[in-house]
Amino acid sequence: MSSRRNFLHKLTLSAVSIPFIPGFETKPMYKMSKKSDQGTMLRVAIMGLGSYGTRVAEAMEACKKAKLVGVISGTPSKITDWQAKYDIPEKNCYNYENFDAIRDNPDIDAVYIITPNALHHPQALRVAAAGKHVICEKPMALNAKEGREMVEACKNAGVKLLVGYRMHFEANTLEVIRMREAGAFGEIKFFQGLSGFRIGDPTQWRLDKALAGGGAMMDIGIYSVNGARYMIGAEPEWVTAQETKTDPVKFKEGVDETIMFQFGFPGGVVASCLSTYSMSNLDRFFLNGTEGFAEMQPSTGYGPIKGKTHKGPLDKPHITHQTVQMDRMAEIILEGDTAKVAVDGEEGLKDLIIIDTIYKAVKSGRKEKIKLG
């Protein structure tokens, strides 16, 4: 653990020392075709072979339009293990120092970045410069400034930038959105989002400001931030926020333990949300309107998502979220499809702007305007 932690620290320091120069590292080294050489099969390399990378890889075995073909890792033993398990050829295996060479590998279409938050920005710039599509875990970056640079880099390179918003493809979530749009809940008035769990190992990267960019808000809290937006179907105009810290040893300066935050939306709609690393059994969304309601618990876990509305239970069949996500992202990248709820870089940037403003509100103690434009 300590050796990996030291490696990540060194990697982060070297990454943040690379300046972003618009137009410099963002030009693809070769012209990309719209579709893969294998028709509509998106060929993906996963960067970061930790627990979530493993979950994605296992889910992709059931995909019809996306295939795991490559790996990028700083741990040689993991690469060897994944090669054997997923039949990955040696030529599609890279480490964090040499993965720029994917520019010369026509058998990889996209790279899914599943590394600590601080690495998303520099790694995405390098992937884009290599002419490959970028899929990035959330939060997309440490802050809105980095997010904007990622959006610009991918645009300049002519590649897609997508963010791992798996809930945007989940069936019961989409059913609630369909009902709201059809007017089933009447005029929306209120949303509540509770996102939290008790975090374990105090030495993990999620509790390291340099690697995580914060604490619970940069991990579990983003679900309530994003969920408020897609459940209400509007963008927040202001936010107030309050931070509570009971363990300053575990949650050091700049690493938030618990933040309560409140949004104001157009038309007087309000939201009350909680992000925490110190309470379990918090995975609940509640949407209230003049004619009905929707309640989901669990609302963002790996599934199955459960819930009900005033009309009865939410009972859409559960399919592994990452399987659906990767197949739909293949359609977006290769077929020009669009998602019901956006999963592109601009969507990820909006969440980063909002999170930046939440942190600002915590410090100021005031109602802060959210400027998404």
Rank of each mutant, 00 (worst) to 15 (best):
Q297C: 10
M218C: 11
M260H: 08
C273N: 15
Y277W: 12
V127A: 07
A342N: 06
E137K: 00
F99V: 00
P19Y: 08
V16I: 06
M217E: 03
S364A: 09
L372T: 05
T357C: 09
A157C: 10
E335N: 09
A294V: 00
I177Y: 00
K340M: 07
I79M: 14
A144K: 13
S275P: 02
P248F: 10
F24Q: 03
L119I: 11
I358M: 15
E90M: 14
L372Y: 09
A59G: 07
H133N: 06
L174C: 00
I18E: 11
M41E: 15
K27E: 02
E331V: 01
K91S: 15
D201P: 06
A212C: 13
D327T: 15
V134P: 00
M60L: 00
L211T: 03
S224Q: 05
L352S: 02
M1S: 15
L211N: 02
N98T: 15
E187I: 12
K245N: 12
A182I: 00
E291D: 14
V134G: 04
V69G: 05
K78R: 10
A110P: 15
A84M: 11
M140F: 10
E137Q: 03
Q242R: 00
T54P: 02
L287K: 02
K78P: 06
N105F: 14
R166F: 02
E295H: 13
I353V: 09
A66Y: 00
M47H: 02
H310V: 06
I319H: 04
A216K: 08
P122M: 05
P116Y: 04
V69A: 06
P304R: 12
M150I: 09
L49V: 01
T203I: 10
A361L: 11
I319W: 01
K306V: 06
K160F: 09
W82C: 10
I355W: 10
V343R: 00
Y165Q: 02
E170M: 01
S14L: 09
S14C: 12
A124Q: 07
T26I: 02
I113M: 04
M47V: 06
M260A: 11
G301V: 04
E97Y: 12
F185S: 04
E346H: 11
G214F: 07
G70T: 05
P28S: 07
C154D: 04
A153W: 12
S73A: 03
F261I: 10
A153Q: 07
D351G: 10
K78L: 13
S3V: 11
V44F: 07
E368C: 09
A271M: 05
S33C: 12
Q325G: 02
V127Y: 03
G193Y: 10
A45H: 12
M231I: 13
M150R: 10
G301H: 01
I220S: 08
Y52F: 12
A330F: 05
M279T: 04
L161A: 05
V270R: 12
